[in-house]
């Protein structure tokens, strides 16, 4: 447990220091949301209608942004080899690194979502719901991305590839995230789709580290 919290704290410190790139995800998210009205026009009713969807797509893309860094920098400086020798199961190490990455990049997205939602004319009562669905869904995206990050760790240019690998598989999270938001807007009842969202997210929370550890074991060397 001590080793794992050490990994989380170390990764967080690396992400938060200059050059760590933790803030870029939020800025990218903000920029995406600003771009949308220029594309579809400043039509407030339309933006209100598609607002939750834009927030979800923006958060999805923003959480894919820094995926390549999770393992590749550790692979380059050799600390990944040290981690592989560690007595702690590699699955748990991968999960700890995923948690640190989510805390550094996913959680800030959830926090700024209500603010960006206001700009898209999302009803204030719904803002909390959108943020809640993102809070439930983005860990799933990050841990799914863990697999792609591990696969691309040994590749010279893995950045864009990991997005291509993760996006199709994150469609279920996107569907249930947006559907549960719309259900909340329509009749205040979002229980059923929201539960599916949590279920799928939890499933990826398990699948991600297991597959990522397998990738680290089999693909490197």
């Amino acid at each position: 447990m001590n080793a794992l919290s050490a990994i989380v704290i170390r990764d967080l410190r690396v992400a938060l220091r200059a050059g760590g790139g933790a803030g870029i995800g939020v800025i990218f998210f903000l920029t995406l949301v600003v771009i949308v009205p220029f594309a579809v026009g400043p039509d407030m009713p339309l933006l209100t209608r598609i607002g939750p969807a834009i927030l979800w797509i923006g958060a999805l893309l923003a959480s894919l942004l820094g995926l390549g860094r999770i393992f590749s920098s550790d692979h380059e400086d050799g600390s990944l080899d040290q981690l592989l020798l560690c007595s702690v199961p590699l699955e748990l190490i991968a999960a700890a690194k995923g948690l640190a990455h989510w805390l550094a990049t996913g959680l800030p997205l959830v926090i700024v979502t209500p603010l960006l939602g206001l700009m898209l004319g999302v009803e204030p009562t719904v803002l909390g719901t959108v943020a809640l669905t993102l809070l439930a869904g983005t860990p799933g995206v990050t841990f799914l991305g863990l697999v792609a990050a591990a696969l691309s760790a040994a590749m010279p240019r893995g950045g864009l590839l990991s997005a291509v690998l993760v996006l199709p598989m994150s469609i279920p999270l996107l569907i249930f995230g947006v559907v549960s938001t719309h259900a909340a807007i329509a009749d205040g009842a979002m229980a059923a789709p929201f539960r599916f969202l949590i279920a799928i997210s939890l499933f990826f929370l398990v699948l991600g580290p297991v597959a990522a550890a397998a990738a680290l074991r089999h693909v490197r060397d």
Binding site: V147, L165, M169, P172, F176, P193, F203, L207, H218, V219
Partner: peptide, 22 residues
């Protein structure tokens, strides 16, 4: 690498099918 991705994708196929139907 492709084998791990194929397995993860295969596990995901029923989930995708279910959510697309929903």
């Amino acid at each position: 690498a492709a084998a791990i991705l194929a397995l993860v994708g295969f596990i995901n196929v029923p989930i995708v099918k279910f959510s697309v139907d929903w």
